[in-house]
Amino acid sequence: MSLACRVIPCLDVDAGRVVKGVQFVDIRDAGDPVEVARRYDRQGADEITFLDITASSDQRDTIVHVVEAVAGEVFIPLTVGGGIRRLEDIHRLLEAGADKVSINTTAVRNPDFIREASEHFGNQCIVVAIDAKRAGDGDDPRWEVFTHGGRNATGIDAVEWARRMEDLGAGELLVTSMDRDGTRDGFDLPLMRAITDAVSLPVIASGGVGTLDHLADGVLDGGADAVLAASIFHFGDHTVEEAKQHMASRGISVRLPV
């Protein structure tokens, strides 16, 4: 099969601005989502994910405007996560030009929301984000689902949760290791493997990427269909194109520029 493994840069957006230090030297405004998205598009990103971390509710609409602006200029799939609570939230984001929405906390609070959303909009646009932290140790690893950006433990087993979300109609899973997120130590590969073995859905690996080898490991050892990373791209360590060249050198099918 020649389906390419996807490389997905992730941007944190707060009140309409890209935050967490995108550091391109040759970009005029590193806080402008359109400019940053355009840059990643040119580098060959297969999708772009926006994580809306806007805290104040009266600025919630800003992400809709961000999506509208980006979707008018960048013609690759866009995913938006963060703060999605109602079908109406999904509707507005899709209307604005998003292709998928990523849902975490609301899925835990009301799993049936995933079924409703999937029936209403089609499962192709419903991504369930699973933030998982190690609970078991050593020989018998287990992972627990967390919500609210890793603050709240749920007691739910991450692998069982992945299966349940598949049954309820998720179209894709975005699996983030909360132990690895921000460490640059690489993905939690046993976590990725446990989930990719458990479901037939595409799985995006996230959390911990520090080197290009980590991306390749996520696919070859973790079984991921796509890899998501933030800082290695934002800080200019590597371009998306370099990431893909490296993955290709390790035998992974990727979409390369002509």
């Binding site: 099969m1 020649s2 389906l3 390419a4 493994c5 996807r6 297969d46 499962n123 192709q124 179209g171 894709e172 037939s200 859905l201 595409p202 799985v203 269909d225 796509a226 979409r255």
Partner: peptide, 14 residues
Amino acid sequence: ATPRRKIPHMGWNQ
């Protein structure tokens, strides 16, 4: 040797 197929078919294909 064909790997298990993920559904939906999602992504960039030739």
